[in-house]
Amino acid sequence: MTETAIELTEVTKRFGSFTAIDKLSLRVERGEIFGLLGPNGSGKTTTINMISGLSRPTSGGVTVLGVDMLVDPQRIRRSLGTVPQENALYEELTAEANLRFHADLFDVPRKGIEKRITSLLELAQLDERRKSRVSTFSGGMKRRLALVRALLHEPELLYFDEPALGVDVQSRRALWDRILELKERGTTVLITTNYLEEANVLCDRLGIIDRGRLVALDSPSNLRRSFGDTVLEMRTQPVPAEDIVRKVRALPGVVSAVAADEWLKVTVEGGAAVTGKVVTAVVESTSLEEIQSREPSLDEVFQSLTGKELRE
């Protein structure tokens, strides 16, 4: 059995003259939770469409679970569970009817299906609502039911589009726990998300796509570290002038320095020595009223790589 769950090799996707994906190469290992991040229009959805066989690449190769998508897409679909963003549930049918329909489509053996549906619904705390129409469910319940449905045929690879979308905080945590449990059981999980916290909590690795290209690929902590190890936020009186910003930016170990209102935000790499030099430079030039120190956030990494905020 191959150790690679998904492998994209030099994949390009064009729509007419527009290149949505440009020679993208990416590998997702078996058993990991991989997050795909990117601003709207970055090519994230196009990539997922090619992985799930809904779209063909213009050039390059897509291999899922060791099978070439162009050669045997049906085999891949059998091993792929999907939770789309809009759930794709039949709202006028009951939860159970949705699951039984899915079982028919995926040819889940009839023997034992009742037991499997019951146990999955119990895990998702939906067993009491199995005879209720989906249209009466809350957003979180629908999300959980869509996950149950995706797991019904015991997929090796699960694609979850925006897990936390439309889900309240309490349900979100429960969903994340379920996804982490899946990882424990060896299921590979691919998620797309715009929630930093979600990416942080769930993902072993993150791929950031922008304008059809992979601009970063690493674990969340490594990505943050690559951006710098400390962010200093300093409130000055008067507000930081441009010459102070320039002076700080010129110091060795400073990754970036930005003034916003009365705050000067400086990202540094090199630990306490660099931090000390930055503080000294600021104090020499102006009155330092307040100082805060923290790790860089994923949002800052994302913004520095794509020039956009994650939830744009």
Binding site: S52, G53, L54, Q74, R75, R77, R78, L80, T82, P84, E86, N87, A88, L89, Y90, E91, F101, H102, L105, F106, D107
Partner: peptide, 13 residues
């Protein structure tokens, strides 16, 4: 219209 076509399109059928 209801988006359920994905359930059909993603099935190995």
């Amino acid at each position: 219209e209801l988006g359920t076509v994905k359930e059909l399109a993603l099935a190995p059928v």
